[in-house]
């Protein structure tokens, strides 16, 4: 197999995509929807899980990046990390039942279409978990309307879909089966 990308560069590229998502998430979503920054990182984590599957290094990297995001955005500790663990668990269970290969092990581009739908579902799962952690651990008065405003907003839905497709496209371009260096 042609291994044109080294193992170390893979990790750096993921972190680079994460930083880019944070920057875009700070401009696009707040400007278009008026929502605070932070939704883009959930999209990134969903794309991370879909692209690489649930492996130890993926779980560990997701925890680190989620924790850094919480620090940078000033969010309650555990809301994004916990959402990532729930998201990872959900994708892990789905993979066990459907026996799917991760996107990184697929050469074909059309496979991104169904995975985008899975990604949206993971995003909703992650947002719900984040809301639940905030509600039960930190903000007892937090209303479900906060969550419904996100999941029912067509603007947020469109923006999240576009972000998800773009991130999956980038990941697939960099980490497709032709280029990946299996550890």
């Amino acid at each position: 197999m042609d291994c044109s990308i080294s193992y170390g560069m893979k990790r750096i590229a993921i972190i680079g995509v994460w930083l880019a998502v944070l920057v875009v998430d700070g401009i696009v979503l707040p400007a278009l929807t008026g929502r605070p920054a932070g939704l883009g990182v959930m999209v990134f984590l969903a794309a991370l899980a879909i692209t690489f599957g649930i492996q130890r290094w993926v779980i560990g990297l997701g925890i680190v990046l989620a924790g850094l995001t919480e620090l940078m955005l000033g969010i309650y500790f555990g809301t994004i990390i916990g959402a990532w663990l729930v998201l990872a668990w959900g994708w892990h269970l789905l993979n066990r039942f459907l026996n799917m290969k991760p996107v990184s092990e697929n050469d074909s581009w059309p496979v991104l279409a169904p995975f985008t739908l899975f990604g949206l579902a993971l995003f909703l799962l992650g947002e719900s978990a984040s809301w639940a952690i905030s509600r039960f651990a930190y903000e007892p008065g937090l209303s479900p309307a906060t969550l419904f405003q996100i999941v029912r907003s067509p603007v947020i839905f469109c923006v999240v879909t576009v972000e998800l497709v773009v991130i999956l496209f980038i990941f697939h371009f960099i980490y497709s089966a032709r280029n990946i260096n299996h550890a």
């Binding site: 930083l19 944070l22 920057v23 875009v24 998430d25 700070g26 401009i27 605070p36 920054a37 620090l71 940078m72 955005l73 000033g74 969010i75 309650y76 500790f77 555990g78 990390i81 916990g82 663990l85 952690i133 651990a137 930190y138």
Partner: peptide, 27 residues
């Protein structure tokens, strides 16, 4: 994580830290 969240919520009074300049790098 659950243990750390409980510790943060009860013992540390739900402390939040922010280390990035501004509200986000994009901001």
């Amino acid at each position: 994580l659950a243990g750390l969240v409980v510790l943060n919520a009860l013992a540390l009074h739900a402390v939040r830290r922010q280390y990035a300049p501004g509200t986000s790098a994009a901001a």
